[in-house]
Amino acid sequence: MSLLENFWSVYSNLVLTLGTNALLALSIWLTLSCGMLAMANAAFMGIGAYTSAILSMNYGAPFPVAIAAGMAAPALTAFVIGKPTLRLSGVYLAMATLAFGEVVRIVVLNAESLTGGALGLNGIPQATQWWHVLLAVVLVLFALWRLRRSKVGRAFEAIKEDETAAGLMGIDVGAHKMLAFVLGAAIAGLAGVLNAHLTFFIGPNEYGFDRGVDILTMTVLGGINGLTGPVLGGVILTVLPEALRAFGDFRLVVNGVILVLIVLFLPKGIWDPARFRQWFGRKGAMA
């Protein structure tokens, strides 16, 4: 029992970070499942984190209220910016959402009286418990699983395959894109709330371009053909740097090499159900 307690005291933040990163990977998986390369999830995470932290620190809001506000604020923001940006596609949408992320960072830096500016917010109440993270991941996975198998999920898939054909079939492409964008923002905001109330501190640099690339990498690395892939990618990208601490200053180099090798030899991600079916089919034929 003491061994487990020692492990938890040392690695509890890392274990809980696995859950928040899984939520972030699922948030961008949702937009990718609708054929949108939107890179605003780091900014949405920051909006959720700052909203909940300000409510907790300045107004003494209960944690459930902070969670609800931390999800609602980025969702509302996504709805507002989605009107003009979702008319774009591909790299243009990625550029527009990246620019939005930079706007959010600059606003946070300049609103010093509210956000702490470059110094960030320190002393956020540690309200996040392990079961909060576990429950959030389970509920989000269940909701996305049901969504994927619903009429809306099938519409997402049709839009991803061919947006024009989906429109000709009677699917409201704009409304479905907006739905995926808003839901993804809410999930990213939830991850921001849990992370902010876990680490005591948040700063504007935590939600910049680097974090956005990390979120996308988690999803693509794990695989976008199922819900297991983003979670797996989030776990790998969280654990890998810690597992490579023995390499010292070369840790980031080894980490990068491993990621490049995975992308080269597993272009559809680690979790690819089609590859597994093909592999097991060959094994069965050989038997």
Rank of each mutant, 00 (worst) to 15 (best):
N255M: 10
T128A: 07
Y11H: 15
G123V: 01
G167K: 06
V193E: 00
L32Q: 09
M71C: 14
M286V: 15
A186P: 15
N255V: 07
V254Y: 07
V15A: 12
G226E: 11
D162M: 04
F100N: 03
V15W: 05
I270D: 02
W145T: 11
I236Q: 03
V182K: 04
F201I: 04
A68F: 13
I258R: 01
I187D: 14
W8C: 03
L198Y: 05
V137C: 12
L3G: 13
K177S: 03
M95L: 13
T219H: 02
A99S: 10
D162I: 01
W131P: 10
L144C: 05
V107S: 05
L216E: 00
G233M: 05
P204H: 03
M39C: 08
A166K: 06
A49C: 11
G229W: 02
V108E: 01
D214Q: 14
T228W: 09
G35E: 02
R146Q: 14
R282H: 02
W8R: 12
F100K: 09
A188W: 04
S89P: 05
N225E: 15
K83C: 00
G116S: 08
V260F: 09
D272C: 04
A165I: 11
D210A: 10
A188V: 06
R154Y: 13
A185E: 12
A69E: 03
G284W: 00
T97R: 01
G269P: 14
G226T: 08
L30D: 04
G269M: 05
T51L: 02
S113F: 15
N21M: 06
A136T: 02
V239H: 08
R245Y: 08
K268C: 08
L179I: 13
V253G: 04
H132T: 12
M45H: 00
A69I: 02
A49W: 05
G101K: 02
Y11G: 10
F250V: 14
F156Q: 09
N41I: 11
L32G: 02
V104A: 09
N41C: 09
V193M: 01
L18H: 07
N122P: 04
F7N: 08
S27A: 13
E206F: 07
A66G: 10
G90A: 03
G184A: 09
A243M: 12
L232C: 11
N41D: 15
V152L: 14
P62R: 00
L93W: 02
V104Q: 00
A111T: 14
D162V: 08
S27C: 03
I202L: 12
